[in-house]
Each structure stands twice: as structure tokens, then as C-alpha cells.
């Protein structure tokens, strides 16, 4: 009995050693490049400071945080982030899943589709922003063209210049750019499913559709949840395309937390308050992500 306990102890210790060795490089890098900056951010959030080394740093205590809690613009931006998050999860993930399912079901011969469908993800945000700037242009853009065709008379659609559709237009573009990634992700998930499961299902008399819905999709559960978490976090800290396309406008209609933070820190020279926004953002996203993990991701048994 004692011997067994000793073995268990030795095992636990060797596990701890192995875990430490394997985790060390990642943890070290994260501390230097992420933990330290985020701590720094929280420290700066208690200052009135413009970021200049030689400028005066005034300690204002929790003033920035008090302002933040009452800052309508911040909560509005947060709301836009939440809308973006919900739409992204509802559009990108099912669409990516559908595309992956098609590719999985049709096998090797559909490789060409896979490559063509992935192209949006390979374009840089600068190119994407540029492209949709012209496609959505009120005058001479594609959408206005289609509207003119449908209406039978010259119709101008100002998608990016007016609220609230500016936000939805941008969400559409974000979905266009990111869906391919989820597609590839689900393909990887499908390939993780043991082929013998498919064979077994066929022997049991299941057709393709039944296999997909009864066998494959439930097996993709964990992958699916990971994808949702990624989309969730990605949407809550999104910056790129919004910055390239609308810079948060018109009239803050597409303002996100990240664009608001950037404007405050770097365009208004208000590093202190910008850091408070960043800190608030960090807390909100982490809490939402961890709650999501708790609620939807059942602890794996292993």
C-alpha cells in the first residue's frame, strides 16, 4: 500500500517536472510580451499621461475607471462588439461548417473548391478594405448597381456612410474574410474522425446525411466549441477592417472597443484613459470567454 502511494507520488512529481519543462518556453514568452504589458496597462490606467517619456505623469487614482463606467461611447462600442460577435458566430461558423461538410463529403475531387474558397483569408486586410470600399461605393459600386437593376431606376445605396447599416455592412465583410478560416478548421476536425466510424455507420445502413448529422457533427462538438470561443474573442477585440474601412464612423456607428481605445491613446494623446479602456476591454473579454468556457465546454474526461 505504502509502496503504491510512493509510486503515485513519484508519478505526480515526474508529471509536474515534465509539465514544467514543456510549458516553460510558452509561459516565459507570454510573461514578457503579454503579462507585463497588461500589468503596465493597468498601472497606466491610473495616470493622466500622454505616453511621452519626458511628459508629466499625474496620478489620478481611479478617475479614469470612474469615467469609463459612465462613458456612453465605450458601452456603445461594446454593444457593437457584441453585435459583431453574435453575427460572426451565427454566420461564419455555420457557413464554414457547411463548406467543410461539402468538402469532406465530396473528397479529393473538390480540392479546387477548397483552394478557391480559401482565397479571402489570404488577402491582407488592406486589400480587403480597399476592395469593399469600391464594391460598396454608393456611386458606381456593385451594391448600388444591383439595386438599380432590381428597382429599374437609378438607386444609390450608401451602405458605409449611414447608420445603422454601416455596421452590418462591415460585419458582412468580416464574415467574408473569416469564414474560410473556420472552413479549414472544420476540415481538420473532420479529418480527425476515424474512418472506421464512417465504415461502421455505413454497415449499420446509414446514408451520408444520417452519418453527417448523427455521427460526424456530434463528434465535432469540442472543435465546434473551440471555434466559437475563437470567434467570440476575435470579435470582441476586433480592429483591422473597421479601421481600414470606416475608422469607427459614421458618427461612431461602427466604433468598437479597440478602435475607441486606439483613438483615445494615439490620436487624442490620452494614454491614461486609453489604458483604462484597454483594461476594461481585457476584463470584459476574459470574463465573457471564461463564462463561455464554463457554460458550454464540459470538462473533458481523460
Amino acid at each position: 500500500m505504502a509502496k503504491l502511494q510512493g509510486m503515485a507520488k513519484r508519478d505526480a512529481r515526474s508529471t509536474a517536472i515534465a509539465a514544467t519543462i514543456f510549458l516553460f518556453p510558452a509561459v516565459a514568452l507570454l510573461i514578457v510580451y503579454m503579462v507585463y504589458p497588461i500589468i503596465d496597462t493597468f498601472l497606466i490606467s491610473r495616470l493622466k499621461w500622454n505616453g511621452f517619456y519626458t511628459a508629466e505623469k499625474i496620478n489620478v487614482g481611479w478617475d479614469n475607471w470612474k469615467t469609463l463606467i459612465q462613458d456612453e461611447l465605450f458601452w456603445n462600442s461594446f454593444l457593437h462588439n457584441v453585435i459583431l460577435m453574435v453575427c460572426s458566430i451565427l454566420i461564419q461558423i455555420p457557413l464554414g461548417m457547411a463548406l467543410a461538410t461539402f468538402l469532406d463529403a465530396s473528397g479529393r475531387k473538390s480540392n479546387i473548391f477548397k483552394i478557391l474558397w480559401f482565397l479571402p483569408y489570404l488577402m491582407s486586410s488592406v486589400a480587403v478594405g480597399f476592395l469593399f470600399y469600391y464594391l460598396l461605393a454608393t456611386n458606381g459600386g456593385l451594391i448600388s448597381g444591383i439595386a438599380t437593376l432590381v428597382n429599374g431606376k437609378r438607386t444609390m445605396v450608401d451602405l458605409l456612410g449611414k447608420n445603422p447599416h454601416a455596421l452590418y455592412a462591415v460585419i458582412g465583410v468580416v464574415a467574408w474574410q473569416y469564414t474560410p478560416f473556420y472552413m479549414v478548421y472544420f476540415i481538420a476536425g473532420y479529418s480527425n474522425i476515424d474512418t472506421s466510424l464512417y465504415e461502421a455507420a455505413v454497415i449499420d445502413g446509414a446514408n451520408r446525411r444520417q452519418y453527417i448529422f448523427k455521427v460526424a457533427i456530434p463528434l465535432l462538438g469540442p472543435i465546434f466549441k473551440t471555434a466559437c470561443t475563437m470567434s467570440l474573442i476575435g470579435s470582441l477585440k476586433y480592429f483591422d477592417l473597421i479601421w481600414n474601412m470606416t475608422q469607427g464612423g459614421p458618427n461612431h456607428g461602427t466604433e468598437l472597443m479597440a478602435t475607441y481605445m486606439y483613438k483615445t491613446s494615439f490620436q487624442k494623446f490620452n494614454m491614461g484613459y486609453g489604458s483604462a479602456i484597454a483594461g476594461g476591454m481585457f476584463i470584459l473579454i476574459t470574463v465573457i470567454a471564461l463564462l463561455f468556457q464554463k457554460v458550454f465546454v464540459v470538462k473533458e474526461d481523460y
Binding site: Y33, M34, P37, K237, M257, M261, M281, A289
Partner: peptide, 8 residues
Amino acid sequence: MSVPMHVT
């Protein structure tokens, strides 16, 4: 994962 890049 939730650290915004511009903060760093």
C-alpha cells in the same frame, strides 16, 4: 487571448 494588440 483577449489582450488587445495595441496595448502592448
